[in-house]
């Protein structure tokens, strides 16, 4: 299903937020580097997941891809066209091609709109269909995500969390998008509901050839859902690889730490406290050199000196070329 031309491509994307200070709050005293030099691409029919802990920039990345914010530098292209130079028609096409499903099904649906209107809104804005066609399409979408068409007249508060997430998915699908950004799509749901939604998302991907960019923290879910996984730390990509490869053999020390912190549902796997020192530093003044070096259990003296670049070590697999990573790889090869 995947073709070679990327559907979505990020090239050295940066997003810095000015931090004001001074007695009147008028002086710019620094910048939070929420996203700092991000490059990756997503192909049609594929799921790329972004993992990382709070402050790593994954949510900002999602907002940039959705064009809810503009990057400070770098380029984001969708179907080969740069988002910052789109004309009105191009923007309309983009809005009809990229949709989103957010984490909290309680805040992502307008409480004063009926479910039918919520689902139809993107179609109304894109002005693609007549009223009758739109209603038919809403009914079709509701059936597709496992709701009953009579429920279109109800309001969101009359639904449970899992059903609300189905409504959000139906809305996202209404304009036949090519890419859906999924920001923690199941983490606010009950455990017994999560599998329903994950299965639905996978079925829709198979049937409609959708691409997903998924933000998630639960590694087992990420492994189950993703073709590629990108690991972010303090605004940068530390490693990106095909999902199974990444989990079979995590290369970067931070990926290893995340992996060892993920709790398996196998009894008897010992609790391995990650050998990380301290906690995530502020993105306001990120550490010099490799941003992970102050916490890295394998850090060498040279790690604080130069900022490592991402290098491709296998097809589809890139990792930050830090001295310690090279040492780990060669040690593993022996």
């Amino acid at each position: 299903m995947a073709t070679d031309a990327p559907l979505l491509e990020l090239t050295d994307v940066r997003k810095h937020y000015a931090v004001s200070g001074g007695p009147l709050g008028l002086k710019t005293v620094g910048a939070v580097r929420a996203v700092d030099g991000l490059s990756f691409s997503v192909r049609a029919g594929e799921t790329l997941s972004i993992v990382g802990e709070s402050g790593c920039g994954k949510t900002t990345t999602a907002r940039l891809i959705l064009k809810l914010e503009e990057p400070t530098a770098g380029a984001i292209s969708f179907e080969g066209r740069r988002l910052d130079t789109l004309d009105a028609a191009g923007l309309r096409h983009f809005r009809g091609s990229v949709q989103a499903v957010f984490q909290d099904p309680w805040s992502s649906l307008n409480p004063r709109m009926t479910v039918g209107r919520i689902i139809a809104e993107p179609m109304i804005v894109q002005a693609r269909l007549s009223r009758q066609d739109r209603q038919d399409r809403v009914a079709e979408l509701m059936t597709q995500v496992g709701l009953r068409r009579e429920q279109a007249e109800l309001y969101p508060h009359q639904f449970s969390g899992g059903q609300r997430q189905r409504i959000a998915i139906a809305r996202a699908l209404s304009v036949d998008p090519k890419l859906i950004v999924l920001d923690e799509p199941v983490s606010a749901l009950d455990v017994s509901i999560r599998a329903q939604i994950l299965n639905l998302l996978k079925d829709l991907q198979d049937r409609l050839g959708l691409s997903y960019v998924m933000i998630a923290h639960h590694l087992a879910t990420v492994r189950h859902m993703s073709h590629h996984v990108a690991v972010m730390y303090l605004g940068q990509l530390v490693e990106i690889a095909p999902g199974r490869e990444l989990f079979r053999r995590p290369l970067h020390p931070y990926t290893q730490a995340l992996y060892s912190a993920a709790l398996s549902t196998h009894v008897g796997r010992p609790l391995s406290e990650p050998a990380l020192k301290g906690e995530i530093p502020s993105p306001l003044n990120p550490p010099s050199g490799c941003r992970f070096h102050p916490r890295c259990p394998h850090a060498l003296a040279e790690c604080s000196a130069s900022e490592p670049a991402l290098v491709e070590i296998e097809p589809g697999r890139r990792v930050q070329d830090c001295s310690c990573v090279r040492r780990l790889i060669s040690a593993a090869a022996k």
């Binding site: 949709q99 957010f102 984490q103 909290d104 004063r112 809104e121 894109q126």
Partner: peptide, 26 residues
């Protein structure tokens, strides 16, 4: 700042529409 307004922007709603259908009724 709510998610449904962000999603309205993702759907391509204009500011007028967001104000009239999402913000004012609430």
């Amino acid at each position: 700042g709510s998610d449904y307004v962000k999603l309205a922007r993702v759907a391509g709603c204009s500011s007028t529409r967001i104000l009239a259908t999402h913000i004012f009724p609430n």
